[in-house]
Simulated scan of single mutants.
Amino acid sequence: MKFVFYTHSLLSDWNHGNAHFLRGLMRDLGRRGHVTMALEPHDSWSRLNLLADQGPAAIEAFSDTFPGLRAQIYPENFDHEAALADADVVIVHEWTDPELISRIGRARRNGARFTLLFHDTHHRAVSAETDMSGLSLDGYDAVLAFGETLRQRYLKAGWAKAVFTFHEAADDTLFRPMPGADKTGDLIWIGNWGDDERSEEILEFLVRPVKELGLRATVRGVRYPADALSALKDGGISYGGWIANAQAPLAFARNRVTVHIPRRPYVSHLPGIPTIRVFEALACGIPLISAPWNDVEQLFRPGTDYLVAEDGAAMQRRLKEVLSDPDLAATLAKSGLETVRSRHTCRHRVDELLTILADVGSRSVIQQLAAGEAAQ
């Protein structure tokens, strides 16, 4: 089948975590013999910021790292209907321009043969509810929501009738342990500063514990304002700026522990959504200690796959325990890796996606799925 993904960007992962997951989905679909294409807007802020920050080489490296993936940048006057004429499945990310979201839905209502899905991997359903309620999802066959609480939001608000929980996951062909890597640091955190959605939490669960313990720590990410950079410096933390997602596994491997600091909207309004870095870190076999978040869907085994620190003082204690106890660190790494490999890889999500398509797909998609099963 031919899958077309409307994304904010496939080429750039600058402050754009959905690119991680999308690349993994497309890679696994390709391994199964499907054709994939990503369409991204000419004015993608992620790609434009990456170019300004790192130059053209960062975009050029995408093709070397992901040679099987195709992305097309579309201009304002792009003929979307023609581009989708031979598509079997079209998946539209929620960062897509609202007018284009409506236009693609209209094409589906007017008889387009593809199955049309809307994919939400953000917290705007609670942080920008008015914007989300204004989206026109008429014509969409279903919504993919990256957490059960988000799925329930859609159903309660009446934004869609068919909504499926579709968590993110790790591309374990990329995110995997690298046991031969030399350890050059104690702690690494890969995360963006964002819009003050976790500024206090970063200070409490990262900066202060690192300073108190005197750890060799590094932060990688973007959008850190001057006061944040000053806080990192005061805590003795090295700041390395943007890191290509494909380089994150080696960065994890060179450190002894990492942390998870969820954004406030996920903790307070969308429990059960860990965001993709948890999946990716555990897939790399690095011990992880998390600030509080409620795993209501039991995706992991808190206390076994990772440790939870209730506050900054607890984070300091947990870090000291993991860094001083090699057996504890090894046990955590092994358990987390085991859970990801058994439940949370992009292969698992493609299996789920194909099941969803079998439930809601157009006639042509259902026929092709049936033909694929018969061939196996």
Rank of each mutant, 00 (worst) to 15 (best):
L307S: 03
A162E: 10
A251M: 02
T96S: 11
V257S: 04
D138M: 11
P179M: 03
Q316K: 15
P56E: 10
V340K: 01
G214H: 00
F3W: 12
E352M: 10
R70W: 08
M178E: 07
L100D: 08
L150S: 05
R208C: 11
D171T: 04
L353H: 02
S364D: 13
F166I: 09
D97M: 05
R151L: 08
G111L: 12
N18F: 15
V350F: 01
A160I: 04
V322C: 06
V296M: 12
G17S: 15
R153T: 06
L39G: 06
P179V: 03
V163F: 02
L328Q: 04
L369D: 02
G111V: 13
A19I: 08
P265V: 07
V340R: 00
S324C: 03
A181S: 06
F166V: 10
R256E: 13
A61L: 04
E76N: 08
A251H: 00
G33H: 05
A83L: 12
P98R: 05
S133H: 09
I73K: 06
A112W: 07
V259Y: 00
E310A: 15
R220G: 09
A52W: 14
L116R: 07
D79S: 09
D28M: 03
N255R: 06
F5V: 13
R349I: 02
V296K: 11
P249Q: 01
P75I: 04
E297Q: 15
A61E: 03
G336H: 00
V278W: 04
I356S: 05
V350R: 00
L69C: 09
Y224S: 10
